[in-house]
Design a protein around this nucleic acid. Structure first.
Lengths: 258, 258
DNA sequence: CGGCGGCTTGATTCGAGTCAAGAACCGTGG
DNA sequence: CCACGGTTCTTGACTCGAATCAAGCCGCCG
């Protein structure tokens, strides 16, 4: 119903809006329609689960603010983080597209998050009404797969130092896509370890080395990127797989996170 | 134009047909329309490239027969295999959906392959005409991402023995989805190494161990699965992520590869 | 028959995991 | 404001899995 969102709502959806545009959604009315179908859920605290595996659901979840991660637990107790999620990212498109209760994948908040939902039926209807939305979401899925492949390369072929550097670069780039520019790394070392397939102990050593190389530094407990150029070159990260997206977005906008 | 395919053509498309049905394409006329837009390319020999990176193209490629792999070369010379492709699989949907010249990903033939192409413009038109085709291809993309995640888990968290066992199970299951049932492993040990993120030397040792455990055996030079059950349990492979698909396919059909 | 690519085997090295203990940091509540 | 308890991070000692190097071997194709 709400084609005219009140100012504060529109405000909270800036990142989602940007992301949809980045993915090629040109019609403003289509975007407004999507935003109009979003129901906000209560905020989620750092380290809490946003989505648990196995449970069937009648709606999809979209991250409005904060950083989250998509992960799976393995029998031996450790967890693998597959990808990080940023404002404007959908968390469980797979549950919508593949009818199965989405294997063992869960989503957890890395920082405090605010999340919204859209009913599956609403989404279907939106896609029917705006076929471009279908393409946009398909594109988002492909992009995710593309990112995952690159990550796989890094995890399976690079030594620990480069692997961690790679993750850090990936993080910076993904934030930029939605217009957030910050040197601070919200992930804990354990998060990075679980994403890179390393032990927390080794990530700690790697981080020490990154500090020695003056690529990173510490601000209280959080890590901070000092020299992004050299970090990227160390990791052999080029971000070319996001180029396509960059072309479509007003690239220089900088918004610092709260 | 050809809604009435001649018998031999229809024959060569059995796997693609099965795959489309498996993915939820119910209308026979829609399937025939898709098949009608396929142009066959000359066969590709074992170890030859089917698709090279970077080159823009006006059509997408679909694997009709044989086994191929999607891979990327890394600066240091080694290669990472991201996934294997089976009859009925599309090789470069990403190039269609993301306009970019698809990063560094290439496709190579593991065995002799026959491949077909569909012009991007034809595909667009087909999707417009049969919206379900859009969903089907989106679903195929999501499924691929899902498989990739599972693989990532294995690569980053399991020791070598399990990793290789996992790949073998994945291979068997993926072949079954399109109705091929065979114990023989067409991949060379080097292929498996490049997919598992191991050295060829170590894969050789792992294979010796698999033989000792009576899970695998050698037939001339090719490997053969002896005990699939125990192999799957060793690898902690459950194939649940393909369950959804199994429900939709006539599961017991067995077709031995040439 | 020769030669080549894929597989095997052994010796050695090294990166990263594990275990264990301690330190720094954080939020909490007295 | 400070003492407390729990994370998260750090450090060191030790172990071990897998990479690398280097030959030699088998099966295949010309």
């Amino acid at each position: 119903m709400t084609n005219s969102l009140i100012q504060s709502e529109r405000q909270s959806f800036v990142h989602l809006t940007k992301r949809l545009k980045t993915l090629g959604m040109d019609s403003q009315t289509a975007i407004e329609s999507v935003l109009g179908r979003i129901t906000m859920r209560p905020g989620v605290n750092k380290a809490e689960d946003i989505l648990v595996p196995g449970r069937a659901s009648r709606h999809i979840t979209v991250l409005i603010a904060g950083v989250a991660c998509l992960y799976e637990r393995v029998p031996n107790g450790s967890r693998q983080i597959f990808s990080f999620r940023y404002p404007g990212d959908f968390c469980d498109l797979n549950r919508h597209v593949l009818q199965e209760t989405n294997s063992g994948v869960a989503v957890a908040a890395i920082t405090c998050c605010s999340v919204g939902t859209i009913a599956h039926s609403d989404l279907d209807q939106l896609i029917r009404q705006y076929p471009e939305l279908g393409s946009v979401l398909w594109r988002a899925s492909m992009l995710e797969a593309s990112i995952l492949r690159k990550r796989m390369l890094s995890v399976s072929r690079q030594p620990a130092l480069q692997r961690v550097a790679y993750l850090l670069c990936e993080h910076l780039y993904q934030q930029e896509v939605v217009g957030i520019s910050s040197d601070l790394i919200p992930q804990s070392q354990l998060d990075l370890a679980d994403a890179a397939g390393l032990s927390n102990v080794h990530v700690s050593r790697v981080f020490k080395e990154l500090q020695r190389l003056e690529l990173m530094s510490k601000e209280g407990r959080v890590m901070k990127v000092r020299n992004r150029q050299r970090l990227a070159s160390l990791a052999e990260f080029d971000g070319a797989y996001l180029n396509m997206l960059r072309l479509r977005s007003e690239w220089q906008v900088k918004i610092d996170p709260p």
